[in-house]
Design a protein around this nucleic acid. Sequence first.
DNA 1: AAAGATTGAAGACTCAATCTTC
DNA 2: GAAGATTGAGTCTTCAATCTTT
Lengths: 168, 168
Amino acid sequence: MHHTRNASRVNVAPSDPGPRWLDGDEQRAWRALVAVLLRLPAALERQLQEDADLTHFEYFVLALLSEAEDRTLRLSHLAAQADASLSRLSHVVTRLEHRGLVRREPCPEERRATNAVLTDDGLTLVVATAPGHVAEVRRRVFDGLTARDVAALDRVCGRILAGVDRDR
Amino acid sequence: MHHTRNASRVNVAPSDPGPRWLDGDEQRAWRALVAVLLRLPAALERQLQEDADLTHFEYFVLALLSEAEDRTLRLSHLAAQADASLSRLSHVVTRLEHRGLVRREPCPEERRATNAVLTDDGLTLVVATAPGHVAEVRRRVFDGLTARDVAALDRVCGRILAGVDRDR
DNA sequence: AAAGATTGAAGACTCAATCTTC
DNA sequence: GAAGATTGAGTCTTCAATCTTT
C-alpha cells in the first residue's frame, strides 16, 4: 500500500488487518526508540573501540570489577550484574585475561566458583578510559536533555524494564 | 531476575577523580537506559526467534520490503532505511534468499544496483509474524506507559538521536 | 540433580579487499 | 575516482555438551 520510508515501522501495511496495533503516537515513539536502540550503542561502541580497543561490554565488565571489593568478583556474579550469560562472560574474561587486564583465581570459599580479578593494568586502563567514555555519554545523550527530560527518561525506562521483566 | 546494584554504573568509584561527570539524576537515568539498551532488544529477539526463526534485524528488513512499492527496494536504500552497512545487508539478504523469503533482481535503471524483492513466502511470513511481534512490543513497552509517558519517550528519543547524529 | 564454569561449533557482524558500473 | 554491491577473514555471541563441586 503505502511506501513510507520509516525505518522502524512495525505494522505491515499491505494487508494491515483491521484494527491498528499501535496508535499513531505510539508508532512515532516506537520508531524513535528503535532508532535509539540501533544507533546509540553503535556510537558508544565506536568511541570505546577507538580509544581503548574495548567493546562496550568489555568496558562494562572492567568497570564493574573496578568498583568491586578487592577488584574481585565471581564470574557468576559478574554475569548477573552485566546481564550476560556465563558462557559469554567466560569468553570475554578469557580475552581480557590474554590482554593482562584481568586474572582468574579459584574462589577460596566455593571450590566450584572462579573469581575474576582486575589487574593493575586493567585498573589503569579503566581509569584512563572512563573520562572519555563519560564525556561521550554526556555529548551524545545528556547535553540535549533538560532536567525534566532526564526525569522522564528515568521514569519511562523504569516502566519499560518492568515490562521486560514481566513473566520471565 | 532482580538486578541488585548498579549494573550500569559509569563512574569508576575507587579512584573517582575529582568532579562528578554525571550528576545523581543523570546517573540514575543512564543506568536505566543502559539496562533498556541491554535487555529490550534481547526480549524482542527472543520472541521473533521462537515464533519465526528471525533476527529482529531480519524481520525489520522483511517488514520494510513488505511496505515498499512492488515489495521491492534497492539494497542501498534498504541499508539506509535499516541503518545498516551494505555489507551487513548483503549477508542478511543472502540468508533470506536461501530461505526463499527474498529474491535478488538486477535493477533495471541502474545496472550497478541490485533490488531485493519480497517473495510470496516472505510476505506470508511477515504477515503471520507481525501480530505477535507487535503484541510483544505492546506488552513489553507500551502497556506500562501512559499517554504522557509515550509523548516524553518520543521527545527524549528524538533529542538523543540528535546527539548521536551530531558531528558525524 | 543443581550450580559454577569452560569449551567448541555455528551463526551473525565488521572490516578490508575486490569487482562492476557510473 | 565514486557508488553499488559482494565476498572472505576475523571476532563476538549463542547454544549445546561437558566437567567439577555441592
